[in-house]
Computed example of a mutant assay.
Amino acid sequence: MTNLANLLDQLNLESNIALEDIPELDLYMDQVIQLFERNFGSSTRNEGEKVLTKTMINNYAKGKLFLPIKNKKYSKEHLILISLIYQLKGGLSIQDIKQTLEGINQRTESGQFELNQFYQSYLRLHEKNIEIFKDDVLQMEQDVKQEVSTLEADESEELEIVLLIASLINISNFYRKTAEKLVDQLAAKNAKKD
Rank of each mutant, 00 (worst) to 15 (best):
I171C: 13
S75V: 04
K73S: 06
R124W: 07
G111M: 01
L81C: 13
K128F: 08
A61C: 06
D136E: 14
Y74W: 00
N116W: 08
S75H: 06
Q106T: 12
Y74D: 03
H126W: 03
A166V: 10
I80E: 01
Y74I: 02
E102K: 06
S149M: 00
I94P: 07
E114T: 09
T108W: 00
Q139K: 04
V162R: 13
K70Y: 09
L164A: 08
M56D: 04
K128V: 07
D136T: 15
F118A: 06
K72L: 07
L159Q: 09
S42M: 09
I57W: 05
N173V: 12
T44Q: 14
N116Y: 10
L123R: 06
K128A: 15
T100P: 00
I104G: 08
L84I: 04
A179P: 00
H78P: 15
E152P: 09
S75M: 03
I69Q: 08
D143T: 09
Q146D: 11
I161Y: 15
D96A: 08
E114K: 08
Q99G: 14
N105R: 01
L65M: 09
R45V: 11
K134N: 15
N46A: 10
S121Q: 10
H126G: 09
E109P: 07
E155T: 10
S149E: 05
E47V: 08
S121K: 09
T108Y: 02
T150W: 07
K64P: 03
R107M: 04
S149G: 07
Y86E: 11
K62L: 07
T178L: 15
Q146P: 11
E47H: 12
M56H: 07
M56C: 02
N173K: 15
V137D: 11
I171T: 15
T178D: 09
K50C: 03
L92T: 00
Y175E: 05
F113W: 00
A61S: 14
